[in-house]
Design a binder for these strands. Sequence first.
DNA 1: CCAAAAGTGTTGCTGGTACACCCATGG
DNA 2: CCATGGGTGTACCAGCAACACTTTTGG
Lengths: 228, 228
Amino acid sequence: MANHPMKPFCYDYPHPAVTTDIALFTIREERLAVLLIRRRAAPFQGCWALPGGFVEMDECLEDCALRELAEETGVTGVYLEQLYTFGKPDRDPRERIISVTYYALAPSEILSPVAGSDAAEVAWFAMDALPELAFDHREVIALAQQRLRAKLDYSTVAFGFMQEEFTLGELQKVYETIRGEALDKRNFRKHILALDLIGETGTSRRVGNHRPAKLYRVQHPGAVLYIK
Amino acid sequence: MANHPMKPFCYDYPHPAVTTDIALFTIREERLAVLLIRRRAAPFQGCWALPGGFVEMDECLEDCALRELAEETGVTGVYLEQLYTFGKPDRDPRERIISVTYYALAPSEILSPVAGSDAAEVAWFAMDALPELAFDHREVIALAQQRLRAKLDYSTVAFGFMQEEFTLGELQKVYETIRGEALDKRNFRKHILALDLIGETGTSRRVGNHRPAKLYRVQHPGAVLYIK
DNA sequence: CCAAAAGTGTTGCTGGTACACCCATGG
DNA sequence: CCATGGGTGTACCAGCAACACTTTTGG
């Protein structure tokens, strides 16, 4: 078997490439939305895809996901969790590439994504209006949405979409958007307050021609807890 | 950078190696047990470890896990599910190795593991009596056990431990072993039968000096369903 | 005074938990 | 007839679902 003078990284056995891909969700205009980049390079040049890229040899997988997200979209400071690892042999036309996928959550207010490095363009897409996607990224997004729905019931992931201070109305909208159904206001408030995870800040916020809403904040910021 | 004439697989950028590792659980003597192999080769030579090995370039990750399990332990026909991907840069002393881990379940009756290829020895270990383990495999097993406990409540994973026909007493023992607590017999039977997932075979089985037990089988073999 | 979202309790139902005795069998 | 696990029903309690009106504000 021939050597390749221009390919300096050599091994006894074939090695796959490994990437991370990140599905960053937020809620915009009462719809669940995911952040996509338009690919600058082949394959799938000009096609929309999840931000992501190759794992460096000295960084762990989570660091890689955060780095790629920052490099390609400028977004930092999100909640991040490993989703699933996709590894069908032909999922990338270039070579064997195994992708460790993550999903991320953030309140849309803190985000101002800007296209960087490999991205010609960055944009939010509502989940019910996704464009054609590169690779198996549609499958990745579908799985992430499913996981998000499930964790809504038995964990505190929903707080990943909230700013530091928020109203119960805003929180309820998040739950309703992800579950795709209206919830009873009284039952929702009773349920959330019984969890004893959030507390009043003592202040309130006026946003329209109506009564101001009390502001709340999470008791243990950063932590995603399992409930029940 | 120098070429390596004896290392014929060359790339423009460094590539990590990718393995799968499998935590196969069963229930033996009313304890949750995991299948380990004693490593024949360095690193961690002579040390106990999870079965697993390098991903071939033309097989998907799940196929790799099943192949490695079969090659190293002779075990086939188990329920298999992806667990988590471990990728700290220094988790293997040889080179950067990313491991996609799986957990597997099987009734102990169908299993007769035998050491193969890379394994000097194969043995079951009760979860409360694990030996020193190679790499980060203790962490893998702990995570797998945690996942198993959680899924017991909202899925039908427990049937992965059952033979085709089983008694309600046997099924209850499985739940009790994994949860680590005794369950009320009447409530357990009521609950399981209400799920409408199993049905009587019409036959019964005698196993001791007492009344024979009705045999049941799952309505939809192979499927692991989510409940509630 | 009108529009708009905030805020607030009670009732019924359902599902989970606690609990004790008789049955079928082999030795 | 004794030991062993198999098999069965009821009563209570807690948590979830359904449901409507008053409050505060800006225009």
